[in-house]
Design a protein around this nucleic acid. Sequence first.
DNA 1: CCTGAATGAGACACTACTGTCTCATATGAG
DNA 2: CTCATATGAGACAGTAGTGTCTCATTCAGG
Lengths: 187, 187
Amino acid sequence: MVHTRESLLAAAQRQLNADPLSSMAVVAAAAGAGRATLHRHFASREALLLEIGERSLGRWEQRLDEHAVEEVAASGDPGRIRECIRGLVRSFVDDSDDFGFALTDHFIVTDPVLVARGDTLVEREVTLWEAAQAAGVLRPDLAPRWISHAMYGLLVSAREALRAGDVARRDVGDLVVSTLLVGAGAR
Amino acid sequence: MVHTRESLLAAAQRQLNADPLSSMAVVAAAAGAGRATLHRHFASREALLLEIGERSLGRWEQRLDEHAVEEVAASGDPGRIRECIRGLVRSFVDDSDDFGFALTDHFIVTDPVLVARGDTLVEREVTLWEAAQAAGVLRPDLAPRWISHAMYGLLVSAREALRAGDVARRDVGDLVVSTLLVGAGAR
DNA sequence: CCTGAATGAGACACTACTGTCTCATATGAG
DNA sequence: CTCATATGAGACAGTAGTGTCTCATTCAGG
C-alpha cells in the first residue's frame, strides 16, 4: 500500500472526527497504515493535529476566496451579498462533515498559532457581515462577531443533527441558511 | 478543609469546563483537595464524568420543570408559549456557562445511559416546539428536532462568544433568543 | 482535652500511549 | 529481473495517568 501525506491526513481527519481521542495506533489503522508509517509523515501526534488544523483553516480560507468575500462586500450590492452569504454558509455546512471536529476539539481550538490564523479569517468574514448590515441584508443591531459565532454554532447543530439522523443531508444546508437568516420564529 | 460530594462536583465541573482533558490530579487540586479524597468520592474518572453528565442533565430537566413546558404546550396560548421559550432559552444560556463542556465533551455526549436520558429530555422539549408551531409562534416548516439542535448550537455560540469576549454577559441571553427566533437577516 | 473520622501526601503497581528503532518484506521504477 | 525505497510488525524505553494503599496529620464534636 502506498500512503501519501494527503491520504494519511484525510484518513486521520475522518477517524478523529469519529473519535477525537483516538490514539496514533488507531489513526494509523484507520488509514490502513502501520504506526511507523504514520510517524514517518508526522513527527508527533501534536504535529498531526496541527496539520489537520491547518488543513481545516486552509479549506475555510479557500471558501472565503471562492466566494470573493471582499469583492462582494465592497460591491455593496444587496443581492450579491445575500447570494454570497447563502453560498458561503452552504459551503461551510458541506465542509463541517469532514472538518467538523476541528470546530470543537480542544487542542485545535486552543493552539495559539491556529487561533491567530483563525482570527484573521474571522476578520475577513466580518467585512462581509458589516457590508451586509450596511446593505440592509443583515440586522444592524447584532455585533458582526456574534453573527460569526452564531453561524459556527449552527454548523455544530448541523453536524449533530446529521449524526442523530434528524435531518436529511440534502436539506441541512438550506436549514442552516434559513435558520441563520430568518430564525425559527413564525413571520 | 471539608469536602462534600457537591463541592467536589462543582469544582470538577469548573475545571473540566476550562480544560476537558484535565487529569484527576489537576481536578483534585482545582477543588483544593488531595487526589485520594477525590477518589474516595468518585471511584474512577469515568464515574466522575458520568456524575457530571447526570448533574447537567438534572439541571436541564429542572429547567424544563421550572418552565412547566408540558403545561404551557398544552395550553396552546401563543403568548405563554412565546414567553416560555424565551425564559427557557435564557435559562439554558445561563447554565451553559457552568455546564457548557457537557455539550461537547465526547465521553459525555457518547455515553449510552446519558444519551438515553438526554433523549427523553429532548422529547419533552419537542412537545413545546410542536405546540409553538401549532400556535403560530414557530415556523411550521422546520423539524422540531432541528429546532432543538439549532438552539444547542446557539448555546455553543454563546459560550464561545463569551470566552472570546465578543459579547457582554448580560446581553448574551437576549442575543441567543433573538437570533433563534428572528434570525440575523434584516426584516 | 480526647477521640474518631476525614484528609493530604506520597508510594506503588499497572496500563496506555508516545516516539524511536530495527529488520524482514513488499513494491514499484528502470 | 534488480534494486532502491517504502512499508508493517514489533521491540523498546520513557512518560503520564489511574486506581489502591498506607500513614501521619488535622480537625470537629463530645
